[in-house]
Amino acid sequence: MASNTEGSGGGARRGTSKRGFASMDPERQRAIASKGGKAAHESGNAHEFTPEEARRAGSKGGKAAHERGTAHEFTPEEARRAGRKGGEASGGGRGGSRAAKSGSAGASTAGSPADNAGGGKAE
């Protein structure tokens, strides 16, 4: 009787098949997955996360990484650099409003979270 060396017969040679998504190199997998995601969005079938869902998912991921011990532990200097970079990207910071930074005298930041931070009503 002939033996099956590559099929799904559950033999000793696992992981040697040249077929299927898992056997592809990571770059090829990423390209195929990207096409699937784009198609799902175009057809309206993709899940759109609400901000609250995204927060919960991100929190779960961070907690899991810390529990496994695989999370990156920032040094104080790395944390300062990351915070500075994020502040610059958002246009925020202590140096004034976005309008002042962008040079637009008529620009408004009304409705931003910072405007409502005190919880009071706008005047």
Rank of each mutant, 00 (worst) to 15 (best):
A122V: 04
M1N: 10
R56M: 09
P26N: 13
A40F: 00
G7R: 03
G86F: 00
S59E: 12
S97C: 04
M1E: 10
G11A: 04
K38E: 08
A114W: 06
A110L: 05
R98G: 05
R84G: 10
S23E: 11
P113A: 02
R28V: 15
A99E: 06
A22K: 14
G120S: 06
R84D: 14
A71Q: 07
S108M: 00
Q29W: 06
I32V: 13
G91D: 05
I32G: 00
A71K: 01
A107E: 12
A22N: 14
F74V: 05
S90M: 13
N116K: 07
G93C: 10
R55A: 11
A89P: 11
G92S: 15
R84W: 08
F21P: 10
E52K: 02
G15P: 01
K101V: 04
A99Q: 07
R55M: 08
A57M: 11
S8H: 04
E48S: 08
E52R: 03
G93N: 11
R81V: 09
R81S: 12
A65P: 03
G20I: 00
E67Y: 03
A54N: 10
T109Y: 01
A65H: 06
P51E: 03
H72A: 07
G95E: 10
G119W: 08
F21A: 12
R80L: 07
G15I: 01
S112L: 04
G10N: 09
E27Q: 14
A122G: 10
P51V: 00
A105Y: 00
